[in-house]
Design a protein around this nucleic acid. Structure first.
Lengths: 356, 356
DNA sequence: TGTGTTACTGGAAACGTTGCCAATACGCTG
DNA sequence: CAGCGTATTGGCAACGTTTCCAGTAACACA
């Protein structure tokens, strides 16, 4: 109406999008060959003559054919796709794991669809179900809640191979997994702090149901026990991996009668909260209170003073997960497990404590 | 051979996985109804009797039916899925954008598949093609290279709606996009620095072909021009958004004859490099040199001194992108554009300069 | 000339859905 | 009782592939 174009142009605009998809049939017709021959060329089967190949390839070019992966996957019974469910993509750590996995999978001719549960167990379940319905060939994930019935039920319905990241579900070695050695990393960190003379050491971390938390606690206890020291039970705070919990827990710790001289933030988001609380309370990291965090993110290196961390190679974890999955996809059997080492990077945030 | 198991066990191992999929056909058979009736129940059409519904639902439960989304998408001609191609998932900023988009799309009944081009234009193209072949209903992306022929060609072949994030391709308003107002943000930042008395102000950013860089430069120039000041051309460094470039550029700037008194890091990864270089050169942020960065990540807030930033709401960008795409998917026409504001957050990293 | 082999090609049946169209049964009106 | 509308259901043809099974031609060999 506003456009006083000629009729011809208008007519074209009338058809919204009844654009028929260009299929192999059109290719076959244009090349004057059978449908099956086009398919053979596309999947480069043996037994296709050079002339046929050229003829078909030309026709594909001419008609502008684009394969329909839906149809092909349906027919073949395989999507050449694996799912990845991350807890929190905005956490650079998980993002790196995902990148490592994707890279390895692509090399092997698989593509990866990345989704985000936002740490929500219900979303976890919904995503597993969705991916199952999508007929993915395999799944890499880090379940939000290891104990939850629903999640294990959804996983059980999946007949394709699964690799867990830093998680173990009921019955130790039922599932394949990539596990980082949090226990030894934490053990080393606590040893370091105890060596420096700290005794009032606090550990702040996520829900104790999760493997990383369990293992870190194990390492923590092991270090104290090895020296015959009592655990500072009142300084162990577990709730969630969020920055807000880190802040709140630190705030409470500082306000207590016998506050810690050292804090271990068991998670890189927690660290943010811990730092905020310390800053708010006017405590200087290193001199007033020692600090250790988990996973080496830019913040830990560039903070002043730089922060001691328990590090691990996130990208390697992703690659390892992909590697295991590929083995399983190739028909490998039994649960496979890869352990990723952790290492302590000492920086200026840990200084001698009262007894040191 | 190496396994002297009994025959029975062997036989079981011979069948790899001939597990026939449970389809609607089995449901229909078990319920004693027609295939089409099962379909009607599943898609809750009108005109199905209550008894039929119950009968079918029970049968589904009984046989353990799981929908095959491949088949259904193929038949329907729509996947209810949109693609998202991120430049770099490990950058928390992009991750947040992706989260915002996913949340909004899920609300609307779409699911999102997230992929990662790692800033590589070739991978960009390959991903667009792959998603096209997967028959996604729409695409949100932030192309790695706006000028590249191949990319625009791949996009052109896509008949589904596309929303760009902070990018514009040839011919200004051809494509829908969510754009952040980098120019005004930078203008405000530079005004702030000039007010403080700085004249030797450096800007470090990515390839000048990219919109965020172009716009930031525009804002930068506008601020200088408005005061009749000459541009410090020698202090403008553009190459890539990486930390390594940030470090290298800063290193060079500091070593020059007439070094800057203030640096603007045009990207949150660049900032990491800038900080490393400053630290290596023994310069203190704020007192020795003023510093502004783009996008408010944990590092900027928790650095000491805290770093002045040009901020924007990443999640909102994602939501806005999803919103536009949904409009287009619903049949909306014409290119739609949403502009996201930026704001300057002043912190202690910007202090009075030589002339101030 | 007949037979067998090789190298290729075509036809048609799947894969698991959905949606159109026709068929059935039922209840009601005239 | 005929006629008709309504509500519900079944049958069947797609959607775009892949793959099995025959079929054809060419050729060599006896």
């Amino acid at each position: 109406m506003a456009n006083p174009d000629e009729a011809g142009t208008n007519k074209a605009a009338e058809k919204p999008t009844p654009v028929k998809e260009v299929t192999m049939k059109e290719v076959a017709a244009h090349a004057g060959v059978a449908l099956s021959s086009v398919s053979r060329v596309l999947n480069d089967h043996s037994d296709v003559s050079e002339s046929m190949r050229k003829q078909v390839l030309d026709a594909i070019e001419a008609v502008g054919y684009e394969p329909n992966l839906l149809a092909s996957s349906l027919r073949r019974g395989s999507t050449k796709t694996v799912g990845f469910i991350a807890n929190d993509i905005s956490n650079p750590l998980f993002a790196e794991i995902a990148m490592g996995a994707e890279r390895r999978l692509n090399e092997a001719g698989y593509s990866m669809v990345l989704t985000n549960s936002e740490g929500n167990p219900e979303r976890d379940e919904a995503l597993i179900r969705l991916l199952r319905w999508r007929r993915i060939d395999g799944l890499i994930l880090s379940v939000a809640d290891e104990e939850r019935e629903g999640t294990t039920a959804e996983l059980a319905k999946l007949s394709e191979p699964v690799v867990l990241i830093d998680r173990q579900v009921r019955g130790a070695d039922e599932a394949s997994a990539v596990l980082s050695d949090h226990a030894n990393g934490m053990r080393a960190a606590i040893d370091h702090l105890l060596d420096l003379g700290h005794r009032r050491v606090s550990l702040i971390s996520g829900r104790p149901g999760l493997r990383p938390v369990r293992e870190r606690v194990n390492g923590f206890k092991a270090a104290f026990r090895a020296r015959g020291l009592d655990l500072p039970e009142d300084l162990l705070k577990f709730d969630s991996f969020s920055a807000t919990f880190g802040q709140q827990a630190t705030h409470e710790l500082l306000a207590a009668d016998d506050p810690p001289t050292a804090i271990v933030a068991g998670g890189n988001l927690l660290l943010i909260g811990v730092l905020r609380a310390l800053q708010a309370a006017g405590r200087t990291v290193g001199t007033d209170i020692s600090l250790v965090s988990c996973d080496d993110v830019p913040l830990t290196e560039l903070h002043s003073p730089p922060i001691t961390v328990i590090d691990r190679d996130a990208e390697q974890m992703g690659e390892a997960a992909a590697e295991l999955l590929l083995k399983l996809l190739a028909g490998g059997d039994g649960p496979l497990v890869t352990e990723i080492p952790t290492s302590l990077i000492r920086r200026a945030s840990t200084q001698p404590g009262p007894a040191g």
